[in-house]
């Protein structure tokens, strides 16, 4: 039995190592490309072992450090607020839907799910948010439209509540006189840490990587989020290199390492998420067991 088990462990590690390598190597290539000399990319393509290293891409971004730091600030703010608020309303909606005894539960589930099927399109949504709520050029414009809550996560969380939290536990809490809301906060949520951490993680990623809301609702550069700023730097820059500048110094533009800057931007966009990840992983352990609550 013991040997059998350790063979199993070896097998698991082997498979996971291979998968990890598949995921890690491209990222490594991305990183190495960001510190490669642009000319050696044009001449030889991407390589794990480039001819010449260069920090030119990061130096180029360093020019804009003031704006980039400000944009980090905006992104961190919307990520924190958006994730927290989104998580709360998602859980609050998912829990009643998970209750089999909830009247009209099926109907409400369908109401939630239907939003995944039919989409009114961009123009009407833009109209609602700009004309009805005037979210243009506000921080809320980055937080609310599209991202705050997603039917997908509601359904996911609903399923978790329904399967992982046995109804008798809830019932017995109720018998003990706890109100629905107290049961939810004191019993359901502590048991649901893994799913809350998962949804929180994805919410964080979506807010962190969002450029779409910024594009639609923000024209004021003071409110640019990180991805918006990086996109604009890149797109504007692409334009400059392909157009002909009237002034004399356009040669400097073709000197800017376009491809490596693109990769460097990806790196500075991804790294903070990787740093934040362990925070979510802390909750990826078995929460309080049901036995503990019963006892």
């Amino acid at each position: 039995m013991k040997t059998n088990n350790s063979i199993g462990q070896w097998f698991v590690h082997l498979v996971l190592l291979v998968i990890s390598a598949c995921c890690l190597l491209p990222f490594l290539l991305l990183f190495i490309t960001s510190i490669t000399d642009e000319q050696s990319i044009i001449r030889h393509g991407y390589s794990f072992f480039p001819e010449t290293f260069s920090l030119a891409a990061y130096q180029y971004l360093w020019h804009d450090i003031g704006r980039i730091l400000h944009a980090y600030g905006i992104t961190i703010a919307i990520t924190l607020i958006g994730t927290a608020a989104g998580l709360i309303i998602t859980a609050l909606l998912a829990y009643p839907l998970s209750r089999k005894d909830m009247p009209l539960g099926r109907f409400w589930s369908f109401v939630v799910f239907f939003t995944m099927l039919l989409n009114g399109g961009l123009v009407p949504q833009y109209l609602v948010y700009t004309q009805l709520f005037e979210l243009k050029n506000t921080l809320l414009g980055l937080i609310v439209p599209g991202l705050l809550m997603n039917a997908f996560y509601v359904m996911m969380m609903r399923t978790f509540f329904a399967t992982s939290i046995p109804f008798p536990v809830i019932e017995s809490a109720n018998i003990d006189g706890a109100g629905e809301f107290r049961t939810f906060v004191q019993i359901v949520l502590p048991l649901s840490m893994p799913i809350l951490a998962t949804v929180g993680l994805f919410q964080t990623i979506h807010y962190w990587n969002d450029w779409f809301n910024g594009m639609l609702y923000i024209t004021d550069s003071k409110l640019f989020s990180l991805q918006n700023l990086l996109n604009r730097i890149l797109l504007d820059f692409d334009f400059l290199t392909s157009s002909n500048f009237a002034g004399g110094n356009a040669a400097e533009l073709t000197d800017v390492p376009r491809e490596t800057v693109r990769m460097a931007m990806a790196v500075i966009g991804i790294v903070p998420i990787l740093i934040a990840y362990p925070f979510f992983q802390r909750y990826f352990v078995k929460g309080l067991t049901i036995g503990a609550i019963k006892g």
Partner: peptide, 20 residues
């Protein structure tokens, strides 16, 4: 049409040329 997953750099190559 709700295809929100488009990459952002999607259009720089062609798009940037518009003004050019």
């Amino acid at each position: 049409s709700g295809m929100l997953l488009a990459g952002c750099g999607a259009n720089n190559a062609d798009g940037s040329n518009n003004a050019g």
